[in-house]
Design a protein around this nucleic acid. Structure first.
Length: 223
DNA sequence: GCGACAG
DNA sequence: ATCTTGTCGC
């Protein structure tokens, strides 16, 4: 019989793949967000034993100062399988987002958007679930290759004959970060927003804050 | 069949 | 992601 992993809804790998494919058709690669961004969100997750900690941080876009941070712990319900990260992280992360008293104009998500084998990385999946603008910000490439034609501070990530993202060089002599459309945004705007949020670090500030919050929870739970 | 593979 | 101190380098 087919390999039936403990996916939500009892999905098999094949069924999960088909779900990703159909959901990816709903992803919008255009700017459906305010022209003037006021609040930016950062999304990340951490793990302690059998618990997943979803984290969401809200920062002021201009000053990059933290306005609010929420976390939510849940039992881990799905194993980590490459290309199926969203099945593992969407639930805890959405719970954290629902605890927020304010919603951002766009979310920076720790993971890929459409730069995914079936076009549905965590950032895109989350964007569809929240019906919000999202940007995928990954530290490693999952699929596609970098086209070395750098004329600015980034190179296109191509898959076949399509540009699925950008390798953004944030600092000299430092590995780039991989940006891709999550939902309701264009790649150009996504790159612009991520660059604005760098503040001298490789990882954009909203994600760093979400990451910090998740780890602070870990310490509290540990003792 | 083999290797690669976000967090 | 996680287990983990000091250390090399900008």
């Amino acid at each position: 019989m087919p390999t039936r992993l403990t996916f939500p809804f009892g999905l098999t790998i094949e069924e999960a793949k088909n779900l990703q494919k159909s959901l990816s058709k709903k992803v919008i690669c255009e700017d459906l967000l305010p022209r003037q961004i006021r609040l930016v969100g950062g999304i990340d997750a951490a793990y302690i034993d059998k618990l997943a900690i979803g984290s969401a941080a809200i920062l002021d876009y201009e000053t990059l100062k933290v306005i609010e941070v929420k976390t939510s712990c849940q039992p881990i319900e799905t194993p980590y399988i490459p290309t199926f990260l969203s099945f593992r992280e969407v639930s805890p992360v959405v719970s954290a987002v629902h605890l927020l008293s304010v919603k951002p104009d766009v979310y920076l998500v720790d993971g890929h958007g459409i730069a995914h084998p079936r076009g549905l990385g965590l950032a895109s999946h989350l964007g569809l679930v929240l019906d919000a603008a999202t940007i995928g910000v990954a530290k490693n490439l999952l699929c596609g290759e970098i086209r070395e034609t750098k004329v600015e501070d980034w190179n296109p990530i191509v898959h076949g004959d399509e540009t699925i993202g950008a390798a953004l060089y944030t600092k000299p002599s430092v590995k780039p970060i991989f940006i891709s459309i999550g939902h309701k945004i264009s790649l150009e705007t996504a790159i612009k927003i991520v660059k604005h949020c760098l503040a001298g670090h490789r990882i954009p500030e909203p994600i760093r804050e979400a990451h910090k919050a998740a780890n602070e929870i870990k310490r509290a739970q540990l003792y």
